[in-house]
């Protein structure tokens, strides 16, 4: 609990001092974006993970999808989709959801390879995810297992932003209304048929653009207004 009293960047420096040399320490050595920085000028990585379940301690990451945003633009050149090689069979239920078979997963890359590619991209940027707890939890576990230290990043959670929007207006909402597809619909965003990690990362990125555009005016919008409380 005490951790929450410290700023995210302070915690980053402390963690960087503890973690052995490697991709995670390299990542942690880049300062985080200031909480006062203007949201419209920042760089983001929208990330989605497909996993075998919801528990980072027991379940595994099947695939990563990410795309970069610069200010209010999504840069599709950065769009990436990575399958992770599985040790053990993918539970049938999650195979059905993600349409990733054992064979496809066997052709994937090692988790360490993908993490080593992703961490430098995240350095100095803000993470975007829809219901970010899952992505943060699995990245944290992956870092602990691979690099012997936890994971930290300034994050905007598109689901949390939507929830705050309802709460600020004292509007009641059904949990279903916070689902990515339903929120996208509210902002007149297109319906995507496929659902892999990249499409969902892109979907969250577009939703974030819409949420950003909803904040009227051209005056700077500090990151802390949208950021997930650590």
């Amino acid at each position: 609990m005490l951790e929450r009293l410290f700023s995210l960047d302070y915690r980053r420096r402390r963690l960087a001092a503890k973690v052995p040399a490697g991709p995670l320490r390299d990542y942690l050595e880049t300062p985080f974006v200031a909480r006062k920085a203007d949201c419209r000028q920042l760089e983001y990585v929208a990330l989605d993970l497909e996993t075998t379940g919801l528990d980072p301690k027991k379940d595994a990451i099947i695939s990563f999808g990410w795309v970069l945003l610069r200010g209010n633009r999504i840069d599709l050149a950065s769009a990436s989709h990575r399958l992770v090689r599985q040790h053990g069979a993918i539970p049938e239920a999650s195979a059905v959801i993600h349409q990733i078979t054992d064979d496809a997963a066997a052709a994937g890359a090692d988790l360490a390879t993908v993490m080593a590619e992703l961490l430098p991209l995240l350095a100095g940027k803000v993470l975007i995810a829809h219901h970010a707890r899952i992505e943060l939890g699995f990245l944290n576990t992956a870092c602990e297992q691979l690099y012997g230290g936890g994971f930290l990043i300034p994050t905007v959670d598109t689901q949390r932003i939507a929830q705050q929007w309802f709460e600020r207006r004292n509007r009641s909402y059904r949990p279903g209304e916070l689902r990515l597809g339903n929120l996208r619909n509210r902002y007149n965003l297109p319906r995507y048929r496929a659902h892999d990690a990249l499409v969902d990362a892109l979907a969250a990125a577009e939703l974030f653009l819409a949420q950003l555009a909803e904040r009227e005016g051209n005056h700077p919008l500090p990151l802390k207004d949208l950021m997930l409380r650590p």
């Binding site: 209010n72 633009r73 999504i74 599709l76 050149a77 965003l189 653009l209 950003l212 555009a213 909803e214």
Partner: peptide, 20 residues
């Protein structure tokens, strides 16, 4: 082609093309 593109979102009432 898709990798050559960027994506933008404009709210109703925004000038087009966007001023920025």
């Amino acid at each position: 082609l898709p990798r050559e593109l960027t994506i933008r979102y404009l709210r109703r009432g925004t000038p087009f093309p966007p001023q920025d």
